[in-house]
């Protein structure tokens, strides 16, 4: 675990072709400064996993606008302010894997928890389950879903201590905790880094074992 001096230092070494998990539900929990640093850093040909596909012109939308993303894996790309993604998609310049939101979260949870695959009731009988293995268990049909593992996770949180224990704030928590478990390198931006012992251990949401780099922005 390393406390970084800058967002630029925090995103060092992210390689072209990486799968990057990016937290946030809309702008709540979106690690905007880390994404800006990633744009500067220059990694391209990325697969990005995030609930949405960018809002307005900042954060994830800015990364998309730079043409750095080959494929989006998300549940809800179409929004009133998703014009960047909409344009790329209509021009055929980005690939989309649409995943129901619960399967998206659970697939990352599985990756982080060492689960090889799981049977989900979500999506059965719909186009999003086409071509996937199904099984009947106790009279109900389920579809096989595989884990989503990230090379890198970029997470926006509230506070971290110098060991990398992390707390979130309100609904900005969303995908952060599960993404933190599912990537080889987890990078967390926080509003404040506090001393070891200053976070109540009962309140820690993401334990330090999952966190590789922290930066205060």
């Amino acid at each position: 675990m390393r406390i970084c001096e800058s967002a630029a230092e925090a995103v060092e070494g992210i390689e072209d072709g990486s799968t990057v998990l990016i937290g946030g539900f809309g702008m709540a929990g979106m690690p905007v400064e880390l994404i800006d640093a990633l744009i500067e850093q220059g990694a391209t040909d990325l697969t990005v996993v995030s609930n949405n596909a960018g809002n307005g012109d900042t954060g994830l939308a800015a990364l998309l606008a730079k043409g750095r993303v080959r494929k989006m894996v998300c549940s809800f790309p179409r929004q009133h302010d998703s014009w960047v993604f909409d344009g790329l998609y209509r021009e055929g310049r980005i690939e989309l894997e649409l995943v129901p939101q619960g399967n998206l979260g659970e697939r990352m949870r599985a990756a982080g928890a060492g689960i090889g695959a799981f049977f989900s009731p979500t999506g059965v009988g719909t186009p999003l389950a086409e071509g996937k293995e199904t099984r009947e268990i106790d009279g109900r049909t389920y579809v096989l879903e595989l884990p989503i593992k990230g090379d890198v996770a970029l997470v926006g949180a509230h506070r971290a201590d110098r060991m990398g224990n992390v707390v979130y704030r309100k609904t900005a928590r969303n995908f952060g905790p599960v993404m933190a478990t599912a990537a080889t390198t987890t990078i967390v931006q926080v509003r404040e880094v506090v001393e070891i012992g200053d976070l109540d251990p009962e309140q820690v949401v993401t334990p330090s074992i999952y966190v590789d780099r922290v930066v205060a922005v």
């Binding site: 549940s75 809800f76 790309p77 998609y89 209509r90 649409l98 995943v99 129901p100």
Partner: peptide, 11 residues
């Protein structure tokens, strides 16, 4: 020409 979006509806 529609951009598909499912969110949490299926779950």
């Amino acid at each position: 020409d529609a951009i598909p979006a499912v969110g949490g509806a299926m779950d």
